[in-house]
Nucleic acid binder design. Structure first.
Lengths: 152, 152
DNA sequence: CTTTTTGCAAACTGTTTGCATTGTG
DNA sequence: CACAATGCAAACAGTTTGCAAAAAG
């Protein structure tokens, strides 16, 4: 399961304790963490790690294509370590939680159907599909008694 | 074409000069402006309008469902006045330009195919589809001589 | 005349950057 | 040992907010 470290090593990524810890945090969790959450979890194991370093590492992993940055409106970005399996995101408008869902069709294929002139001359690299809704906790009448979850 | 003002009036929206100007700016342009660009264009006609007011008005129009906020990664949000015709976005990774494209299929329908348990109990309200690529100006070997456009 | 909306400036969040220090290869 | 990565603090962008003054209905 932990092939992230392997892949990074294989790419000749210079390894440091902070890079290892961040990679482990991403790899061990199946959720979509914000930079701050990654920092908090990393700091449990390596207390002196700085927020800036976590941002640097996450940015680099993004550039390497090892994590996907998920922008949730005005909220903090979330980092998705599941970059090697194509999938889509289901985002809760209430609390910002992100879950993976798996494609029922290929969205990029849908774009291929578009007449060239309707693409405004763009070279299209990828399609991002996000479903918006409410998770069970935030749904009115959901598991929580009464009001929606506080957005976090 | 300018039915935005009409609709807002019809909803009993309290009209002020700044609200009118912002609505006119959005309505007259077919592009996707950032808050700052809206402010700049609004200030041409109404020099004393403040940035905060523009933000307030845009936020309110969003809540009213009259404009759609388009989050472009780490960039400033863009505001899409074309909220009443379902469409998707084509975003240039180079310069952030946004263009509308029109659905080849119904993305929400694709979600309906998903088994309930794969939706994690979410109530799904809408699907957002974004295509990422490079516009002609930013494409290598494109119209511009040499390098990609400066991201703006 | 009451209630909303504005403008200003200051607060705020999330993120990036400059630079001396540290640590890896 | 050279050079890249870190930590810190400060800068930064975009956006939101508190409050007194102005304007709408």
């Amino acid at each position: 399961m932990s092939d992230l470290l392997e892949r990074l090593r294989g790419r000749g990524w210079r390894m440091t304790s902070q890079r290892r810890v961040v990679a482990e945090v991403l790899d061990g969790e199946h959720v979509h963490l914000t930079a701050d959450e990654v920092h908090a979890r990393a700091a449990e194991r390596l207390p002196e790690i700085s927020r800036a370093t976590v941002y640097n590492i996450l940015g680099e992993l993004g550039r390497l294509g090892e994590v996907v940055e998920v922008s949730v409106h005005g909220r903090a970005k979330r980092y998705d370590p599941n970059a090697h399996h194509p999938h889509q995101h289901l985002v809760c408008s209430g609390c910002g939680t992100v879950r993976d869902v798996h494609p029922t069709g290929d969205p990029v294929a849908a774009l291929a159907d578009l007449p060239a002139e309707d693409r405004f001359g763009f070279t299209v690299a990828e399609a991002e599909v996000t479903y918006w809704g409410l998770c069970p906790e935030c749904a009115p009448g959901g598991p929580a008694p009464g009001a929606p979850n506080p957005p976090r």
